[in-house]
Simulated scan of single mutants.
Amino acid sequence: MGTKLIIDTDPGVDDAFAIALAALSEDVDLLAVTTVYGNVALADTTRNAQRLLALCKRDDVPVAAGASRPLVHPQAHRASRIHGPDGLSGRSDILPEPARELVSGGAVALLASVLEAADEPVTIAPIGPLTNIAALLAAHPGIGEKIARVVIMGGALAHGNTTAAAEFNIWSDPEAAQRVLAGGEVHCVLVPLDLTHRCAIDAAWLAQLAASGPIGAALDALTPDYRAHYRTVLGYDGMMVHDAVAVAEAIRPGILRTEAVPVQVECSYGPARGATLADLRSPGQRAGDAHPEAVLTDVAVDTELAELQTFLLERLTGTPR
Results as ranks from 00 to 15, higher is better:
Met1His: 11
Met1Thr: 10
Asp8His: 09
Asp8Pro: 05
Asp10Ile: 15
Pro11Ile: 03
Phe17Leu: 15
Ala22Thr: 00
Ala23Pro: 07
Asp27His: 06
Ala32Trp: 03
Val36Phe: 14
Arg47Trp: 06
Asn48Pro: 06
Ala49Tyr: 04
Gln50His: 09
Arg51Tyr: 07
Cys56Glu: 04
Cys56Arg: 10
Asp59Glu: 14
Ala65Gly: 11
Ala65Phe: 12
Gly66Gln: 08
Ala67Leu: 11
Ser68Phe: 14
Arg69His: 10
Pro70Leu: 00
Pro70Glu: 04
Val72Arg: 05
Val72Met: 12
Arg81Asn: 15
Arg81Thr: 11
Ile82Phe: 13
Gly90Asn: 11
Arg91Lys: 09
Ser92Cys: 14
Asp93Cys: 13
Leu95Gly: 06
Arg100Met: 09
Val103Asn: 06
Gly105Gln: 00
Gly106Trp: 01
Ala109His: 10
Leu115His: 03
Glu116Ser: 15
Ala117Leu: 10
Asp119Trp: 00
Ile124Arg: 02
Ile127Lys: 13
Pro129Lys: 02
Leu130Arg: 00
Thr131Met: 10
Ala135Lys: 12
Pro141Met: 10
Ile143Lys: 13
Val151Arg: 08
Met153Glu: 15
Met153Phe: 15
Gly154Asn: 08
Gly155Cys: 11
Gly155Val: 14
Leu157Ile: 15
Asn161Glu: 09
Asn161Met: 02
Asn161Gly: 12
Thr163Ser: 05
Ala165Lys: 02
Asn169Lys: 04
Asn169Ile: 03
Ile170Pro: 02
Asp173His: 03
Arg179Cys: 03
Ala182Lys: 04
Ala182Arg: 10
Gly183Ala: 10
Gly183Glu: 01
Glu185His: 07
Cys188Glu: 12
Leu190Pro: 01
Val191Ile: 09
Val191Ser: 12
Pro192Asp: 01
Asp194Gly: 04
Leu195Phe: 01
His197Arg: 06
Asp202Ser: 13
Ala203Lys: 03
Ala203Val: 00
Trp205Ala: 02
Leu209Trp: 00
Ala210Phe: 00
Ala211Met: 01
Gly213Cys: 03
Gly216Gln: 01
Ala217Lys: 10
Leu222Trp: 09
Pro224Cys: 08
Tyr226Val: 10
Ala228Cys: 11
Tyr230Leu: 05
Tyr230His: 13
Val233Lys: 12
Leu234Arg: 08
Gly235Lys: 06
Gly235Ile: 01
Tyr236Ile: 07
His242Asp: 11
Val247Thr: 05
Glu249Asp: 07
Arg252Asp: 13
Ile255Trp: 09
Thr258Gly: 08
Cys267Arg: 10
Gly270Lys: 11
Gly270Ala: 14
Gly274Trp: 00
Asp279Gly: 14
Arg286Cys: 01
Arg286Leu: 03
Ala287Gly: 04
Ala290Thr: 09
Val295Tyr: 01
Thr297Trp: 03
Val301Trp: 03
Asp302His: 14
Leu308Glu: 03
Thr310Val: 11
Arg315Tyr: 00
Leu316Asp: 04
Leu316Phe: 04
Pro320Arg: 03
Arg321Thr: 14
Arg321Ser: 07
